[in-house]
């Protein structure tokens, strides 16, 4: 179980509780957090669940995997802490995590 806070581009905070085993993307979709599209349904193949992870949480979630990296790499608005939220599993370790949702998903 983890509490996840999404901050949308206009500064609005959405905090949700998520069960272990789903992804951060699922937690956003299940709770109607705006700005996460997830067109491919969570298979790391559309890059429309892009989030930018707050600095101090990067060490916990770690860097993107190879496939995720190749999708992120094509996004002109990619940042150092960019992740695809469908590739971040919810665990007790990420309880309290804060991620920023970009204005547009590509």
């Amino acid at each position: 179980m983890a509490k996840i806070t999404f901050i949308t581009h206009d500064g609005e905070k959405h905090s949700v509780d998520a069960d272990n085993g789903i992804s951060v993307m699922n937690a956003a979709i299940d709770n109607l957090v705006p700005g996460i599209d997830a067109d491919c349904g969570g298979e790391c193949s559309c890059a429309t669940c892009h989030v930018v992870v707050e600095d101090k949480w990067m060490a916990v979630v770690g860097p993107p995997g190879d496939r995720e990296e190749s999708m992120l790499d094509l996004n002109p608005e990619r940042e150092a802490n960019s992740r695809l939220s469908c590739q971040i599993p919810v665990t007790d370790d990420i309880d309290g995590i804060v991620v920023n949702v970009p204005e547009f998903q590509m």
């Binding site: 790499d73 094509l74 996004n75 002109p76 608005e77 970009p102 204005e103 547009f104 590509m106």
Partner: peptide, 11 residues
């Protein structure tokens, strides 16, 4: 692709 992607990017 990365060269031309910004033309249709968010900014």
């Amino acid at each position: 692709r990365k060269v031309v992607a910004p033309v249709v990017g968010p900014a």
